[in-house]
Amino acid sequence: MVTVVTHPLVQHKLSHMRDVHTGVKEFRELAAELSLLLAYEAMRDLELEPHRLSTPLESGEFPMLTGKKLALVAILRAGLIMTDSIVQLVPAAKVGHIGLYRDPQTLQPVAYYNKLPTDIAERRVFLTDPMLATGGSASAAIQSLKDAGAASIKLMSILAAPEGVAVIERDHPDVDIVVAAVDSHLNDHGYIVPGLGDAGDRIYGTK
């Protein structure tokens, strides 16, 4: 299932990220802020159970998180900006990294790094990658997580293309996707149109 977060703050910040005149510092800040807003939606179904505690006035039962512990896994390198931001919301979450890059000729993912929490199978996993373009890297990362034993996975991206969404739905129909927008299409170079350019380059100021 794909959830598009249409909240006005999300759409406003995304529009600023799209703007070619938005500089590195502001783009990075917007990406971090958007990640927090997307996480708010992506984590809406976390389990709660009542815990007894005392306020300054009286004792009572109040809801607190329960169920599986969490893991944030970034697809390097651009996914780092998202996990680094979201961990502020869930500081007890463990963080993993999957290194993939897209071959510019074949557009297929090439793996170069994989470091996951040893108890990943016992955690709800939130996989982060700002751009869900062809879907190849995200699909490969999800498969790596499944091979490591992860059973509960949700993909969070700032922007997606219909082609990338279709790949995840085909390869991993059990994985939900949370995005700020699904754009028109991919161009011949595998970039999302109208998109916002290369998220990694704009986050880190590289070309």
Score class of each variant (00 low, 15 high):
80 L>H: 02
205 G>I: 09
193 V>Y: 06
127 L>H: 04
96 G>L: 03
168 I>L: 15
6 T>F: 08
147 D>E: 15
14 L>I: 06
144 S>V: 06
77 R>L: 03
196 L>W: 05
111 A>H: 12
139 S>E: 10
172 H>N: 12
116 L>E: 00
61 E>K: 11
192 I>M: 03
140 A>S: 13
148 A>Y: 04
104 P>R: 10
88 Q>W: 09
13 K>R: 13
199 A>G: 03
100 L>V: 03
194 P>E: 11
125 V>P: 00
185 H>C: 07
35 S>E: 10
57 L>Y: 12
84 D>V: 00
175 V>G: 04
165 V>A: 09
16 H>W: 11
177 I>L: 13
39 A>V: 01
62 F>E: 12
133 A>E: 11
59 S>M: 12
190 G>F: 11
99 G>L: 10
97 H>W: 06
12 H>N: 15
124 R>K: 13
41 E>A: 12
104 P>L: 09
171 D>L: 11
45 D>L: 07
52 R>G: 13
39 A>E: 02
108 Q>A: 13
152 S>Y: 06
65 L>M: 12
146 K>S: 04
152 S>T: 08
90 V>R: 01
207 K>M: 12
130 P>L: 05
67 G>A: 06
141 A>R: 08
183 D>K: 04
97 H>R: 13
139 S>D: 06
80 L>C: 01
108 Q>R: 15
7 H>E: 13
